[in-house]
C-alpha cells in the first residue's frame, strides 16, 4: 500500500517536472515535430517504470532488512503465477503499444514522401571534411566550406546524398530538422524534410549540417551553416547567386 502510494507520488512529480521542462527547442520540420512528440511520449511511458524500480528498491531496503548480523531465512516463496502473468501481460501490452505508436505511425510519417514531387531538390556530396551542394535545376552550387545552405520555409525539400568515390562514409544530419542519413561512397541515399520554421545558425546552432559519422581527422568540424528563409526571400537569394 505505502509502496504504491510512494510510486504514484514519485511518478506524478517526475512526469510533471519533465513536461514543464521543455528540453528541446522547436523542431523546424514536420518530421522533427513528430520525432519530438515521439520522444516525449516514450519518456512519459518510461518514467513510471523507472519510478517503480526506484520505489521498489528504496522500499525493500527500508522494509526488508535483516536485523544486525542474524542469519534468518525468508519465507520460501519461489514464484507466484499471478504476478508472473501480470508482469508478462503489462510488459507485452506496453511493448505492443510502443510498436504501434510511435513505432509504426513513425514509419508512416517519416521517409514516406518519396513519391511526392519536392519543391526543391538539393544534391549533396560529402568528402573529407566538407559538404558540397547543388540546387538541382536552379543553377546554383555551394562548394566552399564557409557557404551557408539556404533553404525555403514551408517546402518539401529532397536531399539526394552521396560521398565521393574514394572517400569514406559520412552522415548528413540537420539537428533542427531532427533528420539524418548516411552519405555512403558508391550509394545515393535520400532524405526528405518539410520545413516549418525559419531560422539561422547564428541564432540556433541546430541550424547546421553536421557530419554525424566518424570520418577521420576533422570530423567534428565538418559542418555547414543552415538558414531557412521564407520562399520569396529564397527565390531572391537564388537569383542573386
Amino acid at each position: 500500500m505505502t509502496a504504491g502510494a510512494i510510486w504514484v507520488l514519485l511518478t506524478i512529480i517526475a512526469e510533471l517536472s519533465f513536461t514543464s521542462l521543455n528540453i528541446f527547442g522547436d523542431a523546424a520540420s514536420e518530421q522533427g515535430e513528430f520525432i519530438d512528440d515521439a520522444f516525449v511520449l516514450l519518456m512519459l511511458l518510461a518514467i513510471p517504470i523507472l519510478t517503480f524500480v526506484i520505489t521498489m528498491i528504496g522500499y525493500v531496503f527500508f522494509k526488508f532488512r535483516a536485523k544486525g548480523d542474524e542469519l534468518e531465512d525468508s519465507a520460501p516463496t519461489r514464484t507466484h503465477t499471478k504476478w508472473v502473468g501480470f508482469w508478462l501481460i503489462w510488459t507485452t501490452v506496453l511493448c505492443l503499444v510502443v510498436i504501434v505508436h510511435p513505432g509504426y505511425t513513425g514509419l508512416l510519417e517519416i521517409r514516406q514522401t518519396s513519391a511526392e514531387e519536392p519543391d526543391l531538390t538539393v544534391n549533396v556530396t560529402g568528402r573529407r571534411w566538407q559538404w558540397m551542394y547543388e540546387y538541382e535545376g536552379r543553377g546554383v552550387q555551394l562548394l566552399m566550406k564557409d557557404d551557408t545552405l539556404v533553404l525555403p520555409n514551408h517546402s518539401l525539400i529532397r536531399f539526394n546524398i552521396t560521398a565521393e568515390d574514394q572517400d569514406v562514409i559520412h552522415s548528413f544530419w540537420i539537428p533542427a530538422f531532427r533528420m539524418k542519413i548516411d552519405a555512403v561512397p558508391g550509394l545515393t541515399t535520400y532524405m526528405d524534410v518539410n520545413t516549418t520554421e525559419i531560422g539561422h545558425f547564428n541564432d540556433d546552432v541546430n541550424f547546421r549540417v553536421q557530419c554525424a559519422e566518424l570520418c577521420g581527422k576533422d570530423h567534428s568540424l565538418m559542418f555547414t551553416r543552415v538558414e531557412v528563409v521564407e520562399p520569396a526571400e529564397f527565390e531572391q537569394w537564388i537569383t542573386n547567386r
Binding site: I57, V98, G103, K180
Partner: peptide, 30 residues
C-alpha cells in the same frame, strides 16, 4: 547487484528510444 537493477533500468528504457525508428533517426550517433 541492486546497482545493476537500477542502472540497467535506465539503460534498457533508453534502448527503446533507440529502437524506435523515428526517435533513432534523431538520436543515432549522438
Amino acid at each position: 547487484a541492486v546497482g545493476v537493477v537500477f542502472n540497467f533500468t535506465i539503460g534498457g528504457l533508453t534502448g527503446i528510444f533507440l529502437a524506435d525508428v523515428a526517435t533513432d533517426i534523431a538520436l543515432q550517433d549522438t
